[in-house]
């Protein structure tokens, strides 16, 4: 505990150091990263063949949440804007996919880019007024968005499209090209491919000029403006991009769960995504996977302690995690690494 407090103090005094500590908890050493990557890759390929199909479904959902959390991380971790409203974009993505498949009978594969584009547009438009809001005010406005979403989805004039309270049921796709995979296995691999692609894109984006501009705005909006960065455009674009990621996750979620309904996308989902982000580590890309694991599994674990008090146990686990690692998994790894280094040197 004492070590952690010390870290936080260091972080407070030296923001640049703190950012580096959290965004690169393993330091700049690439070999560890590559080694972990190879092990994970092998495990990811083998997984659906050695586990039960319900577990495969669960891991697929973890990946989907990880994409959604990554979307939130792009906005919060790398651009410094809060959101408690990402369930809205997740819902828009899910409904886009469901309506396209249900009404227009478009293949599930093509619903993803459409969901991405639709959500980008929504995010961008919502991001424009959000430009004038900061910190807690933005959190509040997005919280409002998230509370309103289920009500809008239930709205009677839209019922023809959304199916109202009933929602929309969609069909699970089969594996293409006669691949010897069952539906769950195929959806897992499909999701895995999309996940890898989206994470790779995000990684490259953040290393690019655009990514540096996003982070400059986060770190010092006045300085970034004086360096010639158009803060407004970048912030609105980041909002769009973030919404787009989360929307694609929503579309994937709809396909995998085979069902969308207004009450799946309440403020509770927004909160879950935010919790996942913080638990994984704000501003650390791989943190999204830890966040996804938390979002999916911890409520189940809490339920096993006690049915009646599952919410209380969930809360206690969450508090415990925050006490153990106030800066999420990223901060925790960074701290362990520093301890090791100190022993060596």
């Amino acid at each position: 505990m004492s070590v952690q407090t010390e870290n936080l103090e260091t972080a407070a005094e030296h923001p640049a150091l703190a950012a580096d500590m959290v965004t690169k908890p393993f330091g700049r050493d690439r070999t560890i990263g590559i080694a972990i990557g190879v092990i994970l890759f092998v495990a990811a390929i083998a997984l659906p063949f050695v586990t039960k199909s319900f577990f495969v479904f669960q891991v697929t959902m973890v990946l989907i949440y990880a994409i959604a959390i990554l979307g939130l991380n792009l906005l919060t971790g790398f651009n410094g804007q809060f959101s408690l409203g990402h369930a809205a974009f997740y819902a828009i993505g899910a409904y886009t996919a469901a309506i396209l498949m249900d009404k227009a009978e478009i293949s599930y594969v093509w619903t993803l880019p459409v969901a991405g584009i639709v959500c980008f547009a929504f995010g961008f438009v919502f991001g424009l007024p959000a430009l004038r809001l900061e910190g807690i005010y933005l959190a509040l406005a997005t919280f409002a968005l998230s509370v309103a979403t289920p009500q809008i989805l239930k709205l009677s004039p839209l019922e023809h499209w959304t199916g109202g309270v009933q929602g929309i049921v969609i069909m699970k796709p089969d594996a293409p090209f006669g691949l010897p995979l069952n539906q769950d296995q195929w959806l897992y691999f499909f999701t895995l491919i999309v996940t890898v692609l989206l994470f790779w894109l995000a990684h490259n984006l953040l290393k690019s000029r655009t990514g540096r501009a996003m982070m400059a705005i986060r770190d010092n909006p006045i300085a970034s403006r004086s360096m010639g960065i158009n803060n407004s455009i970048y912030k609105a674009l980041t909002f769009g991009l973030s919404a787009s990621y989360t929307g694609i996750a929503g579309a994937l979620g709809a396909i995998v769960v085979q069902f969308v309904a207004p009450d799946s996308f309440t403020v509770i989902l927004s909160i879950a995504l935010l919790v996942g982000l913080v638990v994984g580590g704000v501003g650390w890309i791989p943190g999204a996977f830890f966040g996804g694991l938390f979002v999916l599994f911890v409520p189940n674990i809490a339920e096993q302690f006690s049915k009646g008090l599952s919410g209380a146990f969930y809360g206690i686990i969450l508090m415990g995690l925050m006490f153990l690692m106030p800066a999420g998994v990223a901060g925790f790894i960074a701290m362990l690494r520093r301890k090791v280094l100190r022993h060596e040197g």
Binding site: T5, E9, L274, V275, V279, G311, Y314, G315, L318, P326
Partner: peptide
């Protein structure tokens, strides 16, 4: 956790909320 980042506080609020409702 007074020195923890703001978002960690938001998460603590959420934890508190679920504990109170459930209890």
């Amino acid at each position: 956790l007074a020195n923890a980042p703001i978002l960690s506080h938001v998460v603590l609020f959420i934890a508190l909320l679920t504990i109170l409702t459930s209890t």
